[in-house]
Amino acid sequence: MRLWSLHPSLLDRQGLTACWREGLLAQAVLAGRTRGYTQHPQLVRFRRQPDPLAAVAAYLHAVADEAAARGYRFDTTRVDVPGGERTRTAPQVPVTDGQLALEWRHLLGKLAVRSPERYAVVEQSGGPVPHPLFVVVPGGVEEWERAT
């Protein structure tokens, strides 16, 4: 499971689709609808929020917004918190600049192999931009990160 801290606009088609599926899985875990992945480290930052389901819903809605901008149709009825509620209930979740940098390098590596045309665009974009849910704070790689 990879719940990118990076803005969904940086992802290629495969990454955006995977992000949506994995976000829905995270939502199911946080809502107690599945027994798998309950200890997954990517869920730590959502569990730290006063309303974890509102946080993951805001995450998913931003992914769906990017998909819609590209002409894809992700079924937002699968998100537990409706889109109209997200601006009222969504927190600003901190993410460290070190975490963004790590994910940026990880994404560029994936894109170079999987989507060279997307790599060229993203690599020239000027660096990592956070997902709208996240606010960047100084710091190293997050303690829950398992990537090397």
Rank of each mutant, 00 (worst) to 15 (best):
Q49M: 14
S125L: 02
E142A: 15
L11F: 01
V121N: 01
T17M: 08
A31T: 13
R73W: 06
D75R: 04
A57G: 15
R73T: 12
A64P: 03
A28E: 11
A57P: 10
W4F: 10
H131N: 04
T96V: 02
E142C: 05
V141A: 02
G71M: 06
R33A: 12
L10R: 07
R86T: 12
Y119I: 05
V29M: 03
Y72I: 04
W104V: 11
L107E: 02
D12C: 06
P138M: 06
V95A: 01
L108K: 02
G84I: 07
Y59H: 08
Y72R: 09
E22I: 00
T34F: 00
V129Q: 09
V56F: 10
Q42I: 07
A62H: 12
W104H: 11
A101W: 04
R21Q: 14
V56N: 11
R105A: 11
T89K: 14
P138A: 14
P132F: 00
A28S: 15
R73C: 09
L11Q: 06
P41R: 13
A90S: 15
L25D: 07
P132R: 00
L107A: 01
Q49G: 09
S125H: 02
R86P: 00
D65A: 15
P8Y: 02
H106D: 08
V63G: 10
A58N: 09
L107I: 04
S125T: 03
D97Q: 03
W104M: 12
Y72Q: 12
Q92M: 10
V79E: 10
P116C: 06
Y119G: 08
S9R: 02
L43E: 02
V121L: 07
R21H: 11
Q14Y: 09
L16A: 11
A57F: 10
D75N: 12
V129R: 10
V113S: 12
V136H: 04
L60N: 10
R33Q: 15
L107Q: 03
H106W: 09
Q39M: 05
V136P: 03
T77R: 07
A68V: 08
T148D: 15
H131S: 03
G84M: 07
R2W: 02
W20R: 10
L53R: 06
M1A: 15
Q27P: 14
L16G: 06
A68K: 13
W4Q: 04
D65N: 11
A69K: 03
P132I: 00
F74A: 15
R70E: 13
V44I: 07
A64V: 11
H61R: 14
D12I: 04
L16T: 08
G127I: 04
A64E: 08
H7I: 03
P82A: 13
V63D: 08
G140H: 10
E22P: 00
P128Y: 05
V29A: 04
G98V: 12
V129E: 12
T96R: 00
F134P: 00
V79Q: 10
